[in-house]
Design a protein around this nucleic acid. Structure first.
Lengths: 210, 210
DNA sequence: AACTGTGAAGTTTTTCACAGCC
DNA sequence: GGCTGTGAAAAACTTCACAGTT
């Protein structure tokens, strides 16, 4: 998982910040301007003390007696997470999954924009999918250098995931979101996160009777 | 997150079992028959001691001096996670995301099969998507009773997620995998897990310079 | 010789509880 | 009165290190 020795803030705390952000945007969406750790925690499955302590790592974002100004806190969290800029992302793999990711509109207003769609297979290279014309993976290094791209989403079959990961790392990608249901080895300097719905399902069936 | 007071095994351990299973299947796929906690941990970002302790919760799955028999361990983990049966799943939401989920073939051999695709919107009800004809959400309760379905995947817009979750819980669903980027409140007896790629991306950008 | 399973030790994470502020 | 920020306490989790087994 993620982590960085240089930082004193636990990675587990960083991992909760996006959840706070998501919930705060929701609160703002329904018209709230101020919230307290007690009100806020009802929207999350996280205790109020946890929320206060997490936020306190970055300095006092709240006001005693009042709570947290929602707009202000959102802004601060966006600063901390460095998503006050728009990050360009490439998608590798133009199959079903890569196509769905390329069509997903949920990245736009949360700090990310898909710049290009790549594939290794000559069959799909050059084809149009959504707003993208599929590029060959060999062009990745040039593309990311020219456009300053640091993040890749992997939507290739498990068999190819390690090899493709090696290629994107060699091309200079610094963060990978891997949708392939397989563990991947990357240098410690490269961030990696996993999306595998089946692992979540399997975690839940443990608690079901049947 | 998941959890169950009745059980003495930490939920965090349960959460790692699907990762072990995924890696073990990989090892088997490349022809291995036996592995050790030391070899195994190289495939995961988990220490060998952690793996041994996690597995020891369920009784001795390994042999001293030898290691773990891969087929045997896979079978045992499938038992523990209750995925030696095939779980039927319904997908709610027949938009881009629901459609992609319905086409995904990765559920099949890992314990899950999509049984039906539901939607609330009259516009899509009755339409064919992949192998499914979209059903109205109102039919959910009858369907799950008849077919013994306990798991739902939510692929609806954030605005509708809580309301749809309430409906599937009322219909008797016991586990929800929520793809909507919003926190949902469900009774403690209902399992819930989240898939939100953006939270993973935002966790990584914290560590990137830029 | 190699490896597991496991108490004990160490570390991290969470919760408590309250001083200080609005 | 209500709330945050925070040391201290408690709980949870991970790692160590080794006895015991093959």
């Amino acid at each position: 998982m993620s982590g960085n020795a240089a930082s004193s803030i636990p990675d587990i705390v960083i991992g909760r910040l996006p959840l706070y952000l998501r919930a705060l945007r929701r609160l703002r969406h329904v018209g709230k301007q101020v919230t307290s750790s007690h009100e806020f925690c009802k929207r999350l499955d996280i205790s109020s003390a946890q929320i206060r302590k997490d936020l306190s790592h970055f300095g006092g974002f709240g006001k005693q007696g009042t709570g947290y100004q929602i707009d202000f806190l959102i802004e601060k969290l966006r600063d901390v997470l460095k998503i006050n800029q728009e990050w360009l992302v490439v998608v590798i793999g133009a199959g079903n999954l890569g196509s769905a990711i390329s069509h997903y509109r949920g990245f736009q207003d949360r700090g990310f924009r898909i710049a290009h769609l790549f594939d290794v297979s000559p069959d799909v290279i050059g084809q149009r999918i959504g707003n993208f014309v599929v590029r060959p993976l060999g062009k990745l290094a040039d593309t990311i250098r020219e456009e300053g791209i640091k993040i890749a989403m992997l939507a290739v079959p498990a068999e190819q995931a390690q090899s493709v990961a090696d290629q994107v790392v060699a091309a200079g990608i610094e963060a990978i979101l891997n949708y392939a249901p397989i563990n991947i080895n990357v240098p410690a300097s490269v961030q990696i996160q996993y999306i595998d719905p089946v692992t979540h399902l399997q975690r839940m069936t443990y608690y079901l009777d049947g």
